[in-house]
Simulated scan of single mutants.
Amino acid sequence: MKHLKALIGLLLIVSLFVAGCTNEQDRVAQKGQTGTNKPSSQENQAQASTSDEIPAKLKKPIKVAAVTQFSIGTFSSQYISGVKEQVEKFGGQVQIYNADNDLAKMASYVETAINQKVDGILIDHGKADALAPSVRKAVAAGIPVVAFDSDLDIPGVTVIDQDDYTLAWNSLRSLAQDINGKGNIVYIWVAGFTPMERRNVIYEAFKKRYPNIKEIARFGNASSNTALDTQSQMEALLKKYPKKGDIAAVFAPWDEFAKGATRAIQQAGRTEIKVYGIDLSDEDLQLMQAQNSPWTVTTATDPADVGRLQVRFLYQKIAGEPTPQVYSIQPHLVDKRTLPKQTISMKDLGKYVPGWGQSQAGTSPWMKKLIEANKK
């Protein structure tokens, strides 16, 4: 009975924590609104304009600076492709600044964008303690800013994320169910990144929720060869635990970690060990669908769709329209057991995962006309 009461208490705390995050987002988003419209949902908050006339500020080519913390892996490359695609459709120009995981360099790039008097700035990842002073300068200079997966909290700056708490919980819940709430697992994780630290909050609660699931190893680092480094570390761990049943599953809350773990497990012939990840790209999807792949589940958003959404919010800001200060993108659970036997791409995923890559947030009626006006 004591354990039951403790479990109920833990679940209540986690529920209140996640609910608090959601309520805070709603409150901040409403605070960030201007004008008289009072949208009834987060999705409606991002659709403020009712006019299909192209705003005057957008009748000239828009210059956008996209400042990224890193460009590791296929998720990042597909995200950047989404940014470029949407800016180009709107007739604008985008300059990508990759900071190679150097936060000081990232802040410097924001300063460069301000000095170049760009029309808008996109920020991908980064930490507030490094970026806030530069971002405040941009806001003071009248340059709209939209950030992705960042802990920035500056009035007027829209911050979008992938709802990292839901991402982590969906994959972890699947893991627990598949191993019947009991077994040894490996956790691949690295600190220093806002989304990773949010996912870790749920992981720590998960361990208390499932006391018979034991973490026997934890490792991980972010580098230019993260997947390869992870593969080497996982190979060493498999030698340490050579028997079937020593390891039930791996939780890898970044697709680069999941790729490395999956390849190590495949090469060792230990496919009884299942991998549960976060994030998805075309490369990841092919790896999941490979015969006898241990990568079983991932929870993700479409990275290209994230990039397109971020650009739409930025153009709304440039047009003078209201945007939410905080917006969470709805993630989707992708289970390889529900996918067809033939290999599919991300473009086909919507046929099997309802709602995949179909976000209509951040749209205004004039966007269609702007795209038409800039068709080449």
Rank of each mutant, 00 (worst) to 15 (best):
A6H: 12
I8D: 14
L10S: 11
I13V: 14
V14S: 13
S15Y: 09
L16Y: 04
L16V: 10
L16D: 05
V18I: 15
V18T: 10
A19C: 14
C21T: 14
D26V: 12
T34I: 14
N37A: 15
P39S: 00
Q42C: 11
E43P: 07
Q45C: 14
Q45G: 15
A46C: 14
S49N: 12
T50I: 14
P55R: 03
P55N: 05
K57Y: 06
L58P: 00
I62Y: 05
A65I: 05
Q69K: 14
F70W: 15
G73V: 07
K84R: 15
E85F: 13
F90A: 13
V94T: 07
Q95P: 07
I96F: 11
A99R: 05
A99W: 01
N101P: 04
N101M: 13
S108K: 07
T112C: 09
N115G: 10
Q116D: 15
G120N: 07
I121N: 06
L122C: 00
H125R: 15
A128R: 09
A128Y: 02
A132D: 12
R136T: 15
A140P: 00
A141G: 08
P144H: 13
F148N: 10
P155Y: 06
P155H: 04
G156P: 04
V157S: 00
T166E: 09
L167R: 06
L167M: 11
A168F: 03
N170P: 07
L172E: 03
R173F: 13
S174C: 12
D178E: 13
N184K: 05
I185M: 06
T194M: 12
P195D: 10
V201I: 14
V201S: 08
F206C: 01
P211A: 07
F219D: 04
G220V: 01
N221I: 11
A222G: 13
S223D: 08
L228Y: 14
T230Y: 01
M234R: 04
M234H: 02
E235H: 10
A236L: 09
L238N: 00
G245Y: 02
V250M: 02
F251P: 01
A252S: 08
G260E: 01
G260K: 00
T262E: 01
R263D: 14
A268Q: 06
G269T: 04
T271Q: 14
E272Y: 12
E272W: 11
I273G: 03
K274A: 11
V275E: 01
Y276A: 03
L280K: 08
E283L: 13
E283A: 14
E283G: 11
L287E: 13
Q289S: 09
Q291W: 08
S293T: 08
P294H: 03
T296C: 10
V297C: 05
T301Y: 11
P303I: 03
D305T: 09
V306P: 01
R308A: 12
L309N: 08
L314F: 06
Y315Q: 08
K317T: 08
K317Q: 15
G320W: 05
G320F: 06
P322A: 09
Q325H: 11
Y327I: 02
S328D: 11
S328P: 12
P331G: 04
L333Y: 02
V334S: 05
V334I: 12
R337F: 06
K341H: 06
L349Y: 06
L349T: 08
G350M: 02
G350L: 02
Y352D: 09
V353T: 02
V353E: 00
S364L: 04
L370T: 10
I371Q: 14
E372A: 15
N374W: 07
K376C: 09
